[in-house]
Design a binder for these strands. Sequence first.
DNA 1: ATGGCCTCGGTTCGAGGA
Length: 254
Amino acid sequence: MKLATWNVNSLKVRLPHVLQWLAENPVDVLCLQETKTVDGKFPVAEIEAAGYQVAYAGQKTYNGVAILSRHPIHDVVRNNPLYPDEQQRIIAATIEGVRVICAYVPNGQTVGSDKYEYKLTWLDHLERWLEAELRIHENLAILGDYNIAPDDRDVHDPVAWEGSVLVSEPERAAFRRLCGLKLADAFRLFEQPEKIYSWWDYRQMAFRRNRGLRIDHILLSPALAARCIACVIDKAPRKLEQPSDHTPVIATIA
DNA sequence: ATGGCCTCGGTTCGAGGA
């Protein structure tokens, strides 16, 4: 079973890339973030024509998440029940016995801003909810854009980024607390090449210079981590015309 | 060099992203 996540930065703009990627990478589950699409305009027909069922939670202009699946989707939950939030950042569903949570963690804008405090509060409530969910679901995967580079290995220039949003210690501590729930960063279960990232700024030719961050992650419950045999980041879609600034992460479960 | 680029909504610029 292959589980993937991709922040598409507007599904309206990126739908051709998503369909092309799924044709070349027929994963079982694909979690999308930043669909920026209201539910009434979600491209259900195009996705179903590609062989996928879909559950989505959208809003106007910002945020929006979706789960695409080749298998039946059960028990859909939108948002964290412990944290009422107008921003559509979470959708969860059970697929083939796996509880799949698709998450778009707030960006945080700048350290110390209101948005940064919202990010930390949001993460705190995510942790509490996941703690409860892990008691219910042995097979649980939470995939998405965490907007946190967990370690200096995940930052192209750790000195330049030190202390800034996406890298700051309180954010990293929040990520470590999720791992403290026995969730495993699937990418780090395996030996990986150096300087592998999942996001590159649109500016300054950052992708060509590989000035990126690894901020998109797949966390796995112990039972799933034990069955995980690979986790890779696919840079290919970032090379296309008019790409998303993020690229997919894929975990393979035996 | 504290910007650069992209998307959206809605107009030709500001907000937000990361």
